[in-house]
Design a protein around this nucleic acid. Structure first.
Lengths: 215, 215
DNA sequence: GACAGCATGTAATGAGTTACATGATTAA
DNA sequence: TTAATCATGTAACTCATTACATGCTGTC
């Protein structure tokens, strides 16, 4: 009769499973590890970890730094069990929260500059991810990552991060290159022609035959 | 002194800008267009559209189907202005909510089968996106999409969707292939060797030099 | 000895979801 | 004519964020 975890709480417990930590350290770890795949605000962590403790999934070891409280949390046996149970449960799916893409969808209500700004933001985020990926990759290859013993698993999250970042960067650049040649966002025959050619190329590149489409 | 929009509300208004719709139709449109890039629960739409109407960004035209109420919403001039303003504001960033990836990160607390199930879920989501992409692509190429006049812009969202789906599918397959050869999730020298080789290959493929890494 | 940045939280508010309810329409 | 599914919402609850507050620690 263990507690059912949400992905957010599972992420917390999962981090705790690695070692006892304060809420602050948990926040750091979450930034390093899941910022891009499960982002949450830092204040959230303080509340959620308390709730995990209240449910017996974590234990709280209260101490102090000078006159400030300082609480170190550890995972309990029940916590381990709940984490295992979560991992065995039916996994939730995949989604983006991609504001630049949303802005592209509604671009015709705005200006060319708005659209370019959205691309720039996507590119900036991708650059940040690539920088993190570079540092991560270096540590893995040197053998100095804190979870080096799990490289055989970490390689998968690493791969997704890198490739997703690269995709986002390429996409943003291609968008900026195309729109950079435009005077405004209005359709023209030439723009339309290039768009259709690109759609065909994409479908071909991914081996997709549009005639198979279910309508 | 117009109202500041959240991305979610902007998505609603953006859809409304295309044509007047009921909340139900908005939900359908959101499913078709932004499910993967800005997913929200359907009940949310009913509340938010009312709030937009209350703020004067949309107008509500109350009618009925038999004895049931039926409200058609339209965007107002203030709504258009708010949408333009949102598009001109500083864009938010890019994030994933990728539960399979989260499960991979904590895989060592679970079983090999858990990990394969996570990969399968990612693959299933990717398949769904690819199916939608195929249908979308067909309509664009035939020239029959409802927003055909915007293909020159739609091509960008289309591109991202297709490539992201393809990436996710490939990743899931690669994960399943590798883990499929394992007996369990424990590290071995061979697993580690393959992982490091893959990390190197990835960095090389993306033209990333880990020695440039900021530490 | 003061300023910047790290560390450690709380409160208030708002966003989002799940569960429920029920009328209309269509196909078997 | 009944079962399924489409259409149209509401209520209750949980999740998550923003804004605030303040103590420590190192550096100039």
């Amino acid at each position: 009769m263990s507690v059912t975890l949400s992905p957010t709480r599972a992420a917390l417990l999962g981090q705790l499973a690695w070692r006892p930590q304060t809420a602050y350290e948990l926040n750091r770890a979450l930034s390093d590890n899941v910022r891009f795949i499960w982002p949450r605000a830092h204040s959230h962590v303080y509340r959620e970890i308390k709730r995990l403790a209240a449910h017996g999934l974590a234990s709280a070891d209260r101490g102090a730094t000078g006159r400030r409280p300082r609480t170190v949390y550890s995972i309990t046996d029940e916590g381990h069990a709940a984490l295992r149970e979560w991992l065995a449960s039916d996994p939730g799916g995949v989604a983006l929260e991609h504001e630049p893409l949303l802005r592209v969808l509604f671009a015709s209500s705005g200006t060319r500059e708005d659209l370019l700004a959205a691309a720039a933001r996507a590119r900036a985020d991708a650059d940040e991810m690539l920088a993190i990926g570079r540092a991560l990759g270096a540590r893995y290859l040197e053998g100095t990552h804190q979870r080096q013993g799990e490289v055989h698993l970490r390689v998968f999250t690493f791969e997704y991060l890198i490739r997703w970042a690269a995709l986002t960067a390429e996409w943003a650049d291609a968008l900026a290159a195309e729109v950079g040649e435009w005077d405004d966002l209005h359709p023209t025959a030439a723009k339309r022609r290039r768009a259709l050619a690109r759609i065909e190329a994409l479908l071909a590149a991914e081996g997709i035959n549009p005639r198979d489409a279910a309508r």
